[in-house]
Amino acid sequence: MSKKKKIALLVTSLALVATLLIGGTLAYFTDSDEAANVITLGKVDGTLTETGEEDREDGTTGKDYENVKPGQELEKDPTLTLAGDSEDAYARFHVTFTGLTDTQVSELKFYKGTEEVKFDGNGYFYVQDIMKANDTFVLFDKVVIPTSWGNEMAEKTFNINVVVELIQADNFTPGTDANGNIDSWGTVTIEKFNG
């Protein structure tokens, strides 16, 4: 082998060894990152209060009226207040009665200001606007006892029970009537939030 070929082979061999040495110690720029997505679900939360309500011995709260007479107007203002940390919500009130017949219930009148408040056939009243945190809604502010009630009602006791229910506004579409007024929540089961 000629001297030129030996030098060329030696240079090539040294270049190969240098490449292997450099390649073995070669560092790469790398990076790794992790995103831990924290998902906290919201809630709908509100309270139902009434001016002058009192705690009773049986654990309930409300107002008691005594010596009521036919034609009398009773101040009663069930008021929903959406919590400050609540999500936007639709609201409905469910009003039921104990101690009255269906006919007697139909004779009671409920007013908010001068406007009569009516409930659907199942005793529901649907708030038509979406409520936002800290919003309040008064269902009615007075109940009028019928003037047609006579001696058959003497010493009769009855209850007006008001329950408020809330459902998130986002991703929920309530049922509406032909005029576009909310009149149902479909088959949704409402559960109490214990937060």
Rank of each mutant, 00 (worst) to 15 (best):
M1N: 12
K4W: 00
K4E: 04
K6H: 05
I7T: 08
I7Q: 04
A8V: 10
A8G: 02
L10F: 14
L10H: 12
V11H: 08
S13T: 14
A15Q: 01
A15I: 07
L16T: 12
L16C: 12
V17Q: 01
A18M: 11
T19N: 02
L20T: 08
L20I: 15
L21Q: 01
L21K: 03
I22R: 00
G23K: 02
G23P: 00
A35C: 02
A35H: 07
A36D: 02
A36T: 02
N37G: 01
N37D: 03
V38F: 04
I39G: 01
T40V: 08
L41A: 15
L41H: 13
G42M: 06
K43S: 07
K43C: 00
V44L: 04
V44K: 06
V44R: 02
T47N: 12
G52M: 09
G52V: 08
E54D: 15
E54S: 15
R56P: 00
G62M: 06
K63E: 06
D64Q: 09
D64N: 12
V68W: 12
G71N: 06
Q72D: 10
T79N: 07
T81C: 05
T81A: 07
L82F: 04
L82H: 04
L82S: 06
D85R: 11
D85F: 12
S86Q: 08
A91K: 07
R92F: 14
F93P: 13
V95H: 08
V95S: 10
T96Q: 09
G99T: 05
L100M: 04
T101D: 09
T103C: 03
Q104W: 09
Q104G: 04
V105I: 15
S106D: 15
K109E: 08
E115S: 04
E115I: 07
E115H: 01
E116K: 10
V117W: 03
V117L: 00
K118Y: 01
K118M: 05
G123A: 00
G123P: 03
G123K: 03
F125D: 08
Y126K: 06
V127Q: 04
D129N: 14
A133L: 03
N134S: 14
T136Y: 11
T136S: 15
L139A: 08
F140R: 05
K142D: 11
K142S: 13
V143I: 15
I145D: 09
P146Q: 08
P146D: 12
T147N: 15
T147I: 13
E155D: 13
K156Q: 10
I160Q: 04
I160H: 01
V162D: 07
V163F: 06
V163R: 05
V163D: 06
V164Y: 14
E165C: 05
L166I: 07
Q168C: 03
N171E: 12
F172P: 07
T173V: 13
P174Y: 09
G175P: 01
G180S: 06
N181I: 03
N181F: 12
D183C: 15
S184V: 11
W185D: 01
W185H: 14
T189M: 00
T189E: 14
F193Q: 05
F193R: 13
